[in-house]
């Protein structure tokens, strides 16, 4: 049974050069518990597809069904609630709030829940422990390394126990050792039952995922063969 279904999704943008088709009639199904990589060259439409899957960017036509919910049929504020409940994001540049500590950044998604402060703190500390950052929980993002900031971003994405994690080039700005640590962490989370969809351009990352979807010129394509 698919957790996510993309049906005939098309996305067009109007730019200076006229209409650009970023996605063309994309159909995709993702099962619960998959660790999926979205791969493709720059400008292929993989980030557009990720933002559509994450409920951030409605397709020009087509549908996104997650857990039997027609996501883009929801009113804007219900769509925000949907993201809060179902989705966790790990952005390329981590995107932590600079004036909040690591712990406070992780607690952010819980701030709009009805959970009491003590419970929020306990949950945030538990996920910080999971990503190995308990000792640095009171540091500001500027006092953390890139890898540590990435871990805080992952902790923030999973603290609310969402069904799906979307990660946009999470290893893009990390050295190879830190990138491996991060992928191991994703794999551990995936083993715990979390569905993870990761955009990457690095083929080395593919050995960690359960399936790879290749996208080129806005359409799903077969993986190019190594020459």
């Amino acid at each position: 049974m698919s957790l996510i279904r993309v049906c005939e999704a098309t996305k067009t943008y109007r730019g200076g050069d006229g209409v650009v088709e970023a996605l063309k009639n994309v159909n995709l199904e993702i099962a619960e518990g998959e660790f999926l990589a979205l791969m493709g060259p720059s400008g292929s439409g993989k980030s557009t597809l990720l933002s559509i899957l994450g409920g951030l960017n409605p397709p020009t036509s087509g549908k996104l069904i997650i857990d039997d919910i027609d996501v883009y049929a929801l009113a804007p504020e219900r769509l925000a609630d949907f993201r809060h409940e179902y989705v966790g994001f790990v952005f390329q540049q981590y995107q932590l709030i600079p004036y909040l500590t690591a712990l406070e950044n992780v607690m952010l998604p819980l701030a709009i829940s009805s959970r009491p402060g003590k419970e929020q703190r306990e949950m945030a500390l538990a996920v910080l422990d999971k990503v190995g950052l308990t000792s640095k929980s009171l540091r500001l993002p500027s006092q953390l390394s890139g890898g540590e900031q990435n871990r805080v971003a992952i902790a923030r994405a999973i603290v609310n126990q969402p069904a799906i994690i979307f990660a946009d080039e999470p290893t893009g700005s990390l050295d190879s050792k830190t990138a491996v640590e991060l992928l191991e962490l994703f794999q551990a989370l995936n083993r715990d039952g979390l569905t993870i969809i990761m955009v990457t351009h690095n083929k080395e990352n593919l050995e960690w995922v359960s399936r790879t979807v290749y996208i080129r010129d806005g359409v799903l394509a077969s993986m190019p063969q190594e020459t």
């Binding site: 993201r83 809060h84 994001f89 952005f91 952010l108």
Partner: peptide, 16 residues
Amino acid sequence: IAELGILRAIGFRRRH
């Protein structure tokens, strides 16, 4: 703006 975009992405409503 970007910071507010992150908050919206993680589920903050406009009224939040």
